[in-house]
């Protein structure tokens, strides 16, 4: 830069220097610099999130098939979907799946966090071990669960039979309706529990010790301390984690796609797996997009609550 300025001056182009200086001053302004820095992110998110979202809405209102852009058909796709038994089953599945998985993750997560917060040895190793299911690629660890739930060689059944808990041959986990739902819920809890436990643990650590000491002086039992000190103070952290997990449990794809592909007889289909089956494998992009847009109300609700929560902070 310095060289070019000197070159410009030597060439008698003093005005050029002034222009460069003015450019420098212009971009040093806080708002210009601020917009400049955020621009790449905004362009990316507009082109690859907002625009596709608009496209999804357009697809859902047209009879768009893979390779043949269709015509505008209004709400036909939605009407067809809502009249479809498989879709109704999917709605029910999604709520059952999310409801059970979230409840279990919350209860077990708080319990695990309380245990990890105690003064134990090997704290770091324990935390590392507990967090592992959340870090390993879900699709790959679900393959392990698939093998553990195998119809013939299931290690779960093998153990339960040897312990005398069930009689041979045991349930076909991924082939019987209620068992299949239980299996996908178990794997989702297994994968999501670390996230709950570690974040709640961080929340626990931020509670000042004095609160507990004061409660102890007042003669509160450990159970009372948990209900009247720990839990109320954990509420903000729990709210964020639960909201966050709601949207990502509701929109889950990997676990169901690998374990059951929505079966048996569609009893484990979630919105994402059904949208994949109809929109991609079936080629009906219009209906597929309409199905995945049913995730939107849940997303909107979570966004609304999260934002309200952040603003209140």
């Amino acid at each position: 830069m310095a060289v070019s300025q000197r070159a410009l001056e030597a060439a008698g182009l003093g005005g050029g220097r002034g222009r460069l200086e003015r450019l420098r001053q212009w971009r040093e302004q806080e708002h210009v610099f601020g917009y400049g820095l955020i621009l790449p992110a905004l362009v990316l998110l507009t082109c690859l999130v907002a625009y596709p979202f608009g496209m999804a809405i357009y697809f859902s209102l047209s009879d768009y098939w893979v390779g043949s852009p269709g015509q505008f058909v209004g709400l036909t796709n939605y009407r067809e979907i809502l009249g479809n038994d498989v879709f109704r089953q999917t709605v029910q599945n999604s709520f059952v799946f999310t409801g059970f998985a979230l409840t279990l993750k919350t209860l077990l997560g708080v319990w695990l966090a309380v245990l990890l917060a105690r003064d134990v040895r090997f704290k770091r190793v324990l935390r590392g071990a507990v967090l592992l299911p959340w870090v390993i690629p879900t699709a790959l660890s679900t393959l392990g669960w698939w093998w553990m739930f195998d119809s013939l060689y299931s290690v779960v059944n093998w153990t339960a039979i040897r312990l005398g808990l069930i009689s041979a041959p045991g349930p076909n986990w991924l082939g019987q309706t209620n068992y299949a739902m239980a299996a996908v819920i178990i794997v989702n809890v297994w994968r999501g529990l670390p996230f709950f436990a570690i974040t709640v643990l961080a929340g626990l650590m931020s509670i000042p010790r004095e609160f507990y000491e004061a409660a102890e002086v007042d003669g509160a039992s450990s159970r009372q301390r948990f209900w009247h000190v720990t839990l109320p103070l954990l509420k903000p952290v729990l709210a964020v984690v639960i909201l966050f997990s709601t949207i990502f449990t509701f929109s889950d794809f990997n676990i169901v796609q690998i374990l059951t592909r929505g079966g048996p007889v569609n009893t484990t289909h979630l919105f994402a797996t059904l949208a994949y089956q109809i929109g991609l494998q079936g080629g009906n992009l219009g209906q597929g997009a309409a199905i995945s847009l049913f995730l939107f109300p849940m997303l909107a609700m979570v966004v609304f609550l999260q934002l309200r929560y952040i603003r209140r902070d």
Binding site: L45, A56, F250, S292, L299, L307
Partner: peptide, 17 residues
Amino acid sequence: AVFITYLVPPTLLFLPL
């Protein structure tokens, strides 16, 4: 806006993308 896109699950957009 960035926060909202943070919450958008990939499964919502894979078809148009």
